[in-house]
Design a protein around this nucleic acid. Structure first.
Length: 131
RNA sequence: AUAGCAAGCUGGUCUAUCGCUGUUAUCUUUUUUGAUGGCAGAGGAAAGUCCGGGCAGCUCAGGACACUGUGCUUCCUAACAGGAAGGUACUCGUGAGGGUAGAGUAGUGUAACAGAAAAUAACCGUCCCGAUUUAUCGGGAUAAGGGUGAAAAGGUGGGGUAAGAGCUCACCGGUAUUCCGGGUAACCGGAGUAGCCGUACACCUUGCAGGCUGCAAGACCAUGUAUAUCACAAUCCCAUUUUAUGGGUAGGGUUGUCCGCUCUGUUUUCUUGUAAAAGUUGUGAGGGGUAGGUCGCUAAAGAUUAUGGGUGACCAUAAUCGAAGAUAAAUGAUAGGCACCGCUGCGUGCGGAACAGGAUCCGGCUUAUAAGCUUGCUAUUUUU
């Protein structure tokens, strides 16, 4: 693990196709505009507490460079704020998978995305601590 | 100077903090892995997927037809529907220049609307003859004139005629063809011959090219679960209420061990056995192969520079360089400078900065694109 705590290595990314299918089929979801969050507690023991997926719809953004830009902004916002989420999970030794889906049809600046990312993670923490 | 035409080029950059992908060195780790440092990390169109090729698989005796594409000439190229140079017709522009078209003709067909008529043309008109209802009617001749149309039967003049007509003659234009000259050729120039003379499209004929599918191609490794196939072992005993129940016993599962719980010990044939066959259970081997992974994968018809050849596309030689390789898919975020553009009070300040993101790789084409630069040329105006 990196020393800074802000790193985002590849094993924290959600890559398995089967896990993604079950996540979208049976995961819990809520909307904190402009983001829709889908999350699921995983049974299998993995080496990281969280696996994350970022998605921007091809139907809403036809040009690839716009999708890339938004995915980078969301990923960056998550990376800079994920330290709020980790202690709870490590304390309870729970693994979760999260998907962030971008909803609007226009490109929002980084400051707004970061603001909603913080709020999203807070509400995620409260939901998880209830369970 | 302004406006424009053609060809070509550029497509911001630096610092700090945090972070991503690949690679390399050192350290660490049982291999995996992890840490730190170094290096590299999107475009002129990466796009559309419209052509062509490399590469891979499938098929594979050879050929013809069909089908599809293409079509002025010569050249370039690995190849092309691409490019270069040249040439013809029509057309737009004052001009620099731009656009469109194209193989062949022996034959066949079609030509909306308008118009009398769209190729054996007679509506009006003109002329002749006949009739008489004499400001009319009938028969015939005529493509000079009218209007329609994308296109109307070569043009002008003389002769000719009842009036007219390439009917005939001269000149001009076109087409076909013969000869001479130029050009590799398309074609051009000159001289002659033929009254031969509308345009477009399609069919048809013909030269050339094309086997099909695409990196999700294709090659390899392979966990778990289930399983084809093969080998070995087991498939027993007693009682009763006999397609069943109970007990013993053997084996398996559960467990660190025991108990307990649970599963299996079935069917058919006869020569009635330590039998055979099928089935079931267990153990081992094992093929194909899902998730996943590795290769394919980036050194290439390569880039830059110089010299030489060519009008040019391009080619040859030499030197130097070695240049992304991801896979729910890396090159980002934040802050601040510099440079650029606009507004401006010319100190500063504020705002802007296009089109757009690799996915097997190359050569083209097409489309999108802020701002800027270079070279050559054109028109107009002014000054010297």
């Amino acid at each position: 693990m990196a020393s800074s705590g802000f790193s985002f290595p590849k094993k924290e990314k959600l890559c398995s196709q089967k896990v993604i299918e079950t996540l979208f089929a049976s995961g819990h979801s809520f909307i904190k505009y402009p983001l829709r969050v889908v999350f699921m507690i995983q049974e299998d023991q993995t080496d990281t507490p969280v696996k994350v997926l970022v998605s921007v719809s091809k139907r809403r953004f036809k040009r690839a460079y716009k999708r890339n830009l938004l995915k980078r902004r969301i990923r960056e916002a998550y990376r800079l704020n994920k330290y709020t989420l980790f202690p709870l999970l490590e304390k309870n030794s729970v693994n979760i998978a999260i998907a962030f889906v971008y909803l609007p049809t226009e490109i929002l600046p980084f400051s707004e995305i970061e603001k909603t990312a913080k709020a999203t993670l807070e509400s995620l923490i409260t939901k998880l601590s209830l369970e």
